[in-house]
């Protein structure tokens, strides 16, 4: 209970800091990094609903980022939605379009498991990228499409995007936390541990996995739509970027895959570092840091920062309580000698 109160207090403090951030920091470049970081908080948290809760590591959900970006831009053109505040209402519309497209793709991919699933999702990314290049009537091909131009400019330009990105991140985190605490989340975690056993205990594994796949696609697509509006342009290699897939997975694994806090911590650490390395050093060094960080995480903290830190604190606390602990258990189990 105490731990939950501490976590809630930390979350409230983080939200307050985030809410005042653009008011305190008026540097446009830093605000831009903050917007991208919040987008990645949302994307990594959404990715974690599938990859972390069910154990199905998707390296293709960036395709739904692109679908969201294109759906937003194309629908704004078709429905003559001008740049302005109302344009943000198109984000959930783009998300729903991507979620509907994700259903058949998820249904097919989720008939496989483990490495095969990973490979199929990678293939999806390149299929969607090829479609974006070649469906020129819809996407304008390699020339890309212009998105609506926001009606505000100057030093205020970043502010609305910052708060919408923050709102999106908070919504995704809230949804992920709700799923984790619900029966749906429990069943997704059971699938992660032993899918066949979960099936044999009455769980509709196929339906639940597909739900996680589609929910992740929906929120990642909304981030894609926000991206398209922010940079006012959508272009195949940026919209369907394999590095976005690596980023979502890396952020989740760095912070703690399968936890709520993990993807948030991962995104807050990785994205600003990425932006810094991209600007400060020669081109390509940011990719080296991706690979290097992945190696460090997998080799040294395979469970991620948050669970490792949490267990470290818990073990310290339990060591301090040892003198007060009872000498021995008296249950039927205390005589059980079978080891693991």
């Amino acid at each position: 209970m105490k731990r939950k109160r501490v976590q809630a207090a930390m979350m409230v403090a983080a939200v307050i800091v985030a809410a005042v951030f653009p008011l305190v920091v008026s540097n446009a470049a830093i605000d831009s990094v903050a917007i991208f970081t919040l987008m990645y908080v949302a994307m990594a948290s959404a990715w974690n609903i599938l990859g972390g809760f069910t154990g199905y590591v998707s390296l293709g959900h960036a395709s739904f980022f692109g679908v969201g970006a294109y759906a937003f831009t194309i629908l704004c053109h078709v429905w003559h939605v001008p740049g302005g505040w109302i344009t943000f209402a198109m984000l959930p519309v783009a998300g729903v379009v991507a979620a509907l497209i994700a259903i058949p793709f998820g249904w097919v991919a989720l008939r496989t498991r483990k490495h095969t699933f990973v490979v199929i999702t990678i293939a999806y990314l390149f299929i969607f990228q090829l479609l974006a290049y070649n469906l020129t009537g819809l996407t304008n091909g390699s020339a890309g499409l212009g998105s609506p131009i926001p009606s505000w400019t100057g030093s205020f330009f970043n502010i609305p995007f910052f708060y919408v990105a923050l709102a999106l991140a908070l919504i995704v985190i809230a949804v992920a936390a709700w799923i984790r605490s619900s029966r749906l989340g429990l069943h997704l975690l059971a699938i992660r541990d032993d899918e066949d056993r979960a099936l044999g205990l009455g769980i509709k594994t196929g339906r639940l996995k597909l739900s996680a796949f589609v929910i992740a696609a929906l929120f990642i697509a909304m981030a894609g739509a926000l991206y398209a509006y922010y940079i006012t342009y959508v272009y195949p290699p940026f919209a369907m970027n394999p590095l976005d897939d690596l980023a979502m997975a890396l952020m989740s694994f760095t912070g703690g895959v399968g936890t709520i806090a993990g993807p948030i911590i991962g995104a807050l650490l990785v994205e600003p570092s990425q932006q810094y390395f991209t600007v400060a050093f020669q081109s390509g060094l940011n990719l080296v840091t991706y690979g290097g960080l992945f190696l460090v995480v997998i080799l040294l903290i395979p469970r991620g920062l948050w669970p490792t830190l949490r267990d470290f604190v818990a073990s310290r606390q339990s060591r301090q309580r040892v003198p007060q602990a009872p000498a021995a258990e008296t249950s039927v189990l205390s005589s059980e000698g079978g080891g693991q």
Partner: peptide, 30 residues
């Protein structure tokens, strides 16, 4: 299982990363 026929395995198959209470909440005859 939904019909009311359950089983255990020779090597027990439990959900190792869930608490014991959570393990008990997994089975469903929805």
């Amino acid at each position: 299982f939904e019909r009311g026929l359950g089983r255990t395995f020779q090597a027990p198959r439990i959900f190792g990363r869930l608490s014991l209470v959570e393990n008990l909440k997994v089975p469903t005859r929805q």
